[in-house]
Nucleic acid binder design. Sequence first.
RNA 1: GCCCCCGUAGCUCAGUGGAUAGAGCAUCCCCCUCCUAAGGGGAGGGUCACACGUUCGAUUCGUGUCGGGGGCACCA
Length: 557
Amino acid sequence: MSSTHPIKDLLAQLVGEALDVVAPGAPVSLEIERPKNASHGDFSSNAAMQLARPLKKNPRELAQLILNELSASPLVAKTEIAGAGFINFHLAPAAWHGVVPRIRREGRAYGHGTRGQGQRVLVEFVSANPTGPLHVGHGRQAALGDALCNLFAAQGWAVHREFYYNDAGVQIATLASSVQCRARGLKPGDAGWPESAYNGDYIAEIAADFLAQKTVRADDREVTASGNADDLDAIREFAVAYLRHEQDLDLTAFAVKFDHFYLESSLYTSGRVDATVATLVANGKTYEQDGALWLRTTDYGDDKDRVMRKSDGGYTYFVPDVAYHVAKWERGFTRAINIQGTDHHGTIARVRAGLQSVGLGIAEGYPDYLLHTMVRVMRGGEEVKISKRAGSYVTLRDLIEWTSKDAVRYFLLSRKPDTEYVFDVDLALAKNNDNPVFYVQYAHARICRVFEEWGGDAATLEAASLVPLVSAHEQALMQRLAEYPEAVAAAAEELAPHLVVHYLAALAGDFHAWYNAEKFLVDDPATKHARLALADACRITIVNGLALLGVSAPETM
RNA sequence: GCCCCCGUAGCUCAGUGGAUAGAGCAUCCCCCUCCUAAGGGGAGGGUCACACGUUCGAUUCGUGUCGGGGGCACCA
C-alpha cells in the first residue's frame, strides 16, 4: 500500500511549488487530470484557469508564469500551454516504468488503500424474508453487497456482513398457512385455497417434508418436523428453517458469506422494540390520534407522520426497523450501508427520522442506502418469468445453474445499481468477446499461458530492466495499471462496484491489443523479460480486480 | 397530485464544469506459417430528451416541460 498515483502526486507537487511563487495563497484546487485527447499530453493542470478570475489575468499568461517557475523533472519530457490555458505534461517513457515493480512487489495488496483504517462498517444486504427461494433481485443485492464489502475491506475498513430477516410478520403467517394447506392436500386453485397463499412448488415440498417428519438445518437452527398438520406453530417453525436452509444453499452457490443473521424476532424478545418506543415517547416525539401512536417524522423531513402502534395494538414494521438500526449504532458501527431495491425508497426518510428522534447522537444521514432496480432475464430472445421452483419468478439458483457464479456476479455488477438490468443468459454462456466476463478472464488465461511457454524464473523477471517498454501499447497499459488504485478507491467511495468492472474491461482490452500487436516472446532476452514483467503486472491487477467482484480468474479456459 | 431515479450512437450502457462526448454489440472492411483468431486493427453512426438560467466555458450545476421506471397504508 502506497500512494494512489505517484505520478499525479509528483506533478501536483511541482505545480503547487510553482503556484507558491506565482500566486501565494491563491485558492486553487490542485487537480492533475488525464486529458481525453492523447495529443494533449499525459496529464494536464487547469490551475491557470482557476487563477484567472481572482487575479484578473489572462489564463494563458498565468500558465506561462507557472511554467517559468516549474522545476524540471527527469520524468517530464515536455510541457506546453494549450487551449484556454491548460498546462499539458508529456512524460518520458520511464515515468511509467515504476508501476510494474510496484505491482509485482505489492501483489495481492496492489490497489488497497488506508482510508478506512480503524473504522467499522456494517453492510446489510439480501435480507430476504424466509418465504421463498432467493430471486434474481436478491442476486443483484448479494453481488453488490459482497463486492462493496470487498471494496471497503480493501480500503482498510473492518467490515461486517449482515442479513436481517423478518421472522415475525404477516408474510411468515402466510407462509405457515400456505404450507398447512398443502399439508392438508389442497393445491392452488382448489376450493379453500387462500388467495393470499404462496403458490410455488416449493411450498408443497416443504409440506411433504413436514409430514415426513424430516429434520432441516440452517446456519442458526435445527428443526425436526412434528408431522402434525394441525399444529400451525410447528409448521411455521419448520417452514422458516426449511427456507433458511434453501437460502443458505442459494448463497453458497453464489459464494456469499454473512457474518451474522439478525432476527427481527430478537428485537422483540430482547425488549429493544419496547425500549425504542419508550424512548421516542419520553423524547416527546410521539402523539396519540385515532387510537394509534404516531411518530413526528415530519420534524425530520418525512412528508407525513407515521403510525408506530396501530389501533389494534400491534407495531408497524418500521418500529422494529428503527430498533434494529439503533442496535447497529450501539454495536459500534458508526457507518452502516443498506442495500435494497428501489421500492424501499419511501422508507428511508422515516427510518432516519426515527433514528434522529431517539436522540442518541446518531449521524444525520445514518444509515446509507444503496438502492438498485429490477433485473429481468432473457433466454433465447425471450423474457423468462417463471421458475418451476418459485412459481412466479426466476430464482438466483436457476440463473447460476444456467450460467455460472462468475457470469452472474460480473453481469449483475456491470451496471450502475440504479439502471434496470436485463440479464442475457445466452450472452453469459458465450465463449467469445461478446461475453464481457469471458473477455476479462481470457486475458488472464492468456497471460498464464505465456508464462507456461516461457519457462523462466522469478529472479530473472525481478532483475529485468523495463527500458525496452516504449511502444504505445506498452505505455497505455502501464498508464492503465497505474490508475487501478484510484479506480478501486472511487468504487468504494461512491458505492459503485461497476467502476471496477469497467476498469477491468478496459485493462483487458489494452492487454489484448498489446498481445495481438506483438509476438512478445521474442528471442532478445531484454525485450522478452521486460514484457513478461509487464504481463505479470497485468495478471496481478486482473486477479485483484476480479477478486473484489467475487469472480474467479481461471488459468486456462 | 407529491417524492425519488432515469432519458447519451440503431441496441445495451459508461463518462465529464473545460480543449474533437466514449466502450461493447449490431453493420461494413481488414489481419494468423507465430505464445489460445476464444484475439486484434479500421470505417460509418450523436441536437448528450427539450427550454430557460448560472458560468469565461454546461452534456455535466439550477429551474421548468415532456417521456420511462419506482414509491406515496393503522402492509412488510
